[in-house]
Every structure is written in C-alpha cells, then in structure tokens.
C-alpha cells in the first residue's frame, strides 16, 4: 500500500513546495527569482501591521491562557464521567460555524447591540459606547473563537499528571498552592505551550474577525495576505507573508518542543 501514501502525501507536498517556488515564478508578474518581495515585507507599513497582529494575538493568547488554565484545571477536578461532558461543552462551539460565532458578537457589541442596550437601560451610561469596530472587539472575537483550543491541550497535559505527584509534594510539607505551583504547573508547561501556539497562530492569520468586528480599521496579517491575493493581485508578496506565517508556526512548535525537553529532560 505504498502507493496510497504517495498518493495522499502528493497534494500536501505540492502545496509545500509550491509555496516556496512561487515567490518569483507565478502571479502573472515576473518569472525570475527575486528577493524583492522579502525586502518589501520589511517596509515600515507592513512591519507596523505585523506589530499590530502580534500584539493583538499575544493579548488574545494571554487572555485565553488566563481563562483556559483554570478552566482546564476545574475540569480535571470533576468526576471522570462529568469531565467528558464538560469537555464536550467547551469544544462544541468550536465545531460550529465560525462566521456565525463572530456574528453573534456583532449582535452583542454594536451601538444598538445588547450590551449597550443593557447598560443604557440600567442607567450606567447615557450614550452608547463604541464597542464594535475597536481592537478590543477584535480581541474579544478571537478569544471567543479560539478559547477551546487553549483548554483542550492544557486539559490533556493536566490529566496526564499522576495525581500522586501532587500528593507527594503535600506529604513532604508543601501547601496545596505550593504543590500546584511547584509540581503541577511545571509539568503542564508543554501542554500549555501547545495551547498558546494553537491560539496564537490562527489569531495572526485570521481575517474575518478584524473585518467584521474591527470594521476594517484593525488590519492584521491575515487581512493583508487576503488583500494581496484577491485585491492587489500581488501573489508573490502574499506568498511571502503566508510563508512567514507557516515558518512562524514551525518555529513556535520547535520552541515548544525545546522547552518541553528542558522541563522534562529527554523523557
């Protein structure tokens, strides 16, 4: 069944190699190899967009971590049969339509939206707040979309930790919190980093949320790539940005693997 493998891997391989080829070769412009596209990516305009994307995605990742870790920890404390239910509850929204989940936040955040209506009704504010079309709305939308991707790997990491390790720490004189800090946290680092990569990477590449919740005012790398392909029709440059995104993913995973090795030794 060797041919099966070849057949399956081929499309994947083509894409991988293609994204490296195309930089000077396709896009209807030039067929000669050039590094100009890479140089262009260092232009201050694009560096600025990259900076915004990284800043927003980092915020999203940090928030997802701060919410996701206690959530995952809470799930591990449930009884086994309840753990499965809680996991399904957390993941379920992730399997539903992304556009609709983003749309729900328009309903909540727009100036006639429910949040403003509620605050007005309670007399807390007198004029509607500009909630939608802000970087904050983008962060909220991305957090909402990708929180399950943080909870899942952290839960997997926590549930693999032998509970007797925590008890051993307590037996040796550590308080509950010290045991959590010195034994559970370090051992959960690998899974936590996976969660961070899982949230960070799609956040950087997302163009729907910045468009729908950021109103086009917050431009992220994802929007830039999309525009290079569908509007500016500058495919080589768009490819450079996309390759940068994939390279970043690979680098982040490599970093994750390194840190994991540091924490747990080679084991």
């Amino acid at each position: 069944m060797g041919y099966v493998i070849a057949f399956m891997v081929l499309p994947v391989a083509i894409i991988a190699t293609y994204s490296f080829f195309q930089r000077g070769q396709y896009g209807g412009i030039v067929y000669s190899l050039t590094l100009d596209n890479f140089a262009r990516a260092l232009d201050s305009l694009y560096v600025g967009i990259l900076g915004t994307s990284v800043a927003l995605s980092s915020t999203v990742t940090l928030l997802a971590l701060l919410i996701g870790f206690p959530t995952a920890l809470a799930i591990t404390k449930l009884q086994p049969q309840h753990q499965n239910i809680a996991l399904v509850l957390v993941i379920l929204p992730f399997w539903t339509n992304f556009l609709i989940r983003t749309y729900a936040w328009i309903v909540l955040l727009s100036s006639e939206g429910l949040l403003n209506q509620g605050l007005l009704g309670l007399g807390i504010i007198s004029d509607p707040l500009a909630l939608l079309y802000t970087p904050g709305a983008v962060v909220m939308g991305l957090l909402y979309a990708y929180l399950p991707l943080m909870v899942l790997p952290i839960y997997a990491a926590l549930s693999r930790i032998d509970p007797s390790l925590r008890e051993a720490a307590i037996d040796l004189g550590a308080s509950r919190f010290t045991a959590l800090r010195q034994v559970v946290f370090p051992l959960a680092i690998p899974g936590t980093l996976v969660g961070c990569v899982f949230v960070f990477v799609p956040s950087v590449g997302n163009f729907i949320v910045p468009e729908l919740l950021g109103g086009g005012k917050t431009v992220m790398v994802g929007n830039l790539i999309r525009d290079q392909f569908l509007k500016a029709r500058d495919w080589p440059f768009g490819s450079v940005l996309a390759i940068a995104m994939v390279v970043m993913l690979v680098l982040l995973f490599a970093l994750q693997a390194r840190i994991t090795k540091r924490v747990l030794g080679q084991g």
Binding site: D162, S164, L165, E167, A168, A169, I170, D171, L172, G173, A174, S175, V183, P186, L187, V263, L264, G265, G267
Partner: peptide, 20 residues
C-alpha cells in the same frame, strides 16, 4: 492536622518522583 503538617511521610506505590 493537614497532610503537609503531619510528622509522617509516605513512600508512594508508584514512587511519584518529580520528573522535572
């Protein structure tokens, strides 16, 4: 007396050595 303050120590069946 909570377990971390008991003058008693337990050697776990699985050893429970901290891998990190």
């Amino acid at each position: 007396v909570p377990p971390n303050e008991r003058p008693v120590n337990l050697m776990f069946q699985s050893y429970a050595l901290f891998p990190h």
